[in-house]
Design a protein around this nucleic acid. Structure first.
Lengths: 249, 249
DNA sequence: CACGAAAGCGAACAGTGTTCTCCAAGCAGG
DNA sequence: CCTGCTTGGAGAACACTGTTCGCTTTCGTG
């Protein structure tokens, strides 16, 4: 994604979705170098804590290349950072999915686990966390690729929420009416997950739960929570149970 | 604050908190220039949407000065941005206070008003919002001045919450126990507000309400909310009422 | 008025993102 | 085998950036 800067990397595999041309020697080398660049960038990003001061030249030094050579793989510094952000989306989504896959957990406990997994990932990857929440803005959000990865991320908690709704573990019908209207795009995602029913209320509830949990993590990562609460981990646990308690039964 | 770069601006008003020396002609000129610099910086910050790319040299051009001259007023670019962040704290605190001061509002409605005032401020000042939430990190937060302004900000909703608790409008005792422990620093703030009682549960509830509301605004400002909800304003209103509904009665 | 501190200028340095030209490989087809 | 052509990379260059230092002007205050 967001490659092909100069003259297009994949020469003719664009229009014809034909015989799935095996990746050539060159393609594999290119992919390896791309990954190496991204790995180096992530390495340099880690101590920075803020994605802003990632130096392209430093990345080039790290991988033993000239700064200009990086431009064979990424159109710009912004592009490199966006690629890192997309990977971060996938990474945190995987962390959530892992927490959701633990067997023999009560629905409420599974949701609590996912919240803790989210917080743990964010605390462990503060730079990538900042990266995710810097790209994209109020109006139209980012590129289509960005939207795609973002939706892919939300798919993870959404499938769990829909499952719990279908199993009757969510206190449906107790919210104020009328419910706010949701985007058709996200309903399509829900529909693709199964015919159990496209339930707008589930989307609304997930958004509210998510906003509450994400908000606490934000406060913690930017130093606000620690200024107010004594034991932040304990406070998070309590917060999560309060929030989920108003939606689960 | 965070001035006095070269040799100290206020020559001898530092140690002796004595006769409140009236601001000299120079002091006033200095303050005016400082404000002009900050105003220019804010101007340039507005379209940027991200605080990162604020150029000190551009600020200097805007006010008609040499870049190096700025260093007579701020020790570094970081210092200038921190000053802007502190002003932003005061600005959003004022917006909240204004919403809280509207007379003849029911407690719940007043809380809803404050939430909307917060969202409105954030949408109107996205760059300053980003500024506030970039300084400070997980561990110890920022400078003492930063903590001071941060606590000053939280004082505004806290006094309202304590008022509502004292008037019996908050559903005390319905949370999971044990309650998480809060910082003594914030309890001192609460104590200073009035002897009505230092109520740790009020601090916990405020934190959770605050995290939930702030979280939604974060999602909106970074383009997540718009991707999921159709009418974000409507969704925010619903979210706020859901959250506050679990704490007010 | 004269002194001295404050405020501003201008050059300089190191570092940045980005673009350009050029060159050495590696793969293609005759 | 040789000839092209595409790709990956080097290196110089440009327009910036934040920051420092020395010099000069200005202006308030003794």
């Amino acid at each position: 994604m967001t490659e092909t800067p100069d003259r297009g990397a994949q020469p003719e595999t664009s229009a014809s979705t034909g015989p799935e041309r095996a990746p050539s020697r060159r393609d594999r080398a290119r992919l390896a170098t791309t990954d190496e660049i991204k790995a180096a960038a992530r390495e340099l990003l880690a101590p920075a804590q803020e994605g802003s001061d990632l130096s392209l030249r430093a990345v080039a030094r790290e991988v033993g290349m000239t700064p200009s050579a990086i431009y064979r793989y990424f159109e710009s510094r912004h592009d490199l950072m966006e690629a890192l952000a997309l990977d971060a989306f996938d990474s945190v989504a995987a962390a959530l999915g892992e927490a959701a896959a633990v067997p023999d957990r009560a629905p409420l406990q599974r949701a609590v686990d996912m919240a803790h997994a989210y917080r743990a990932w964010c605390l462990r990857h503060p730079a990538e966390f900042a990266l995710i929440f810097r790209h994209g803005n109020v109006s139209g959000a980012g590129s289509p690729t960005w939207r795609e990865h973002l939706l892919g991320f939300y798919r993870v908690p959404l499938v769990i929420m829909l499952e719990d709704v279908a199993a009757g573990h969510v206190a449906l019908g107790t919210m104020a009416t009328p419910l706010p209207v949701v985007q058709p795009e996200i309903l399509e995602v829900a529909q693709a997950l199964g015919p159990d029913g496209v339930c707008p209320e589930a989307v609304v509830r997930l958004t509210q739960v998510w906003a509450s949990i994400h908000g606490f993590v934000c406060l913690e990562l930017f130093g606000h929570a620690g200024l107010i609460m004594g034991d932040v981990a304990e406070a998070f646990e309590h917060h999560v149970r309060t929030v989920l308690g108003t939606h689960y039964r």
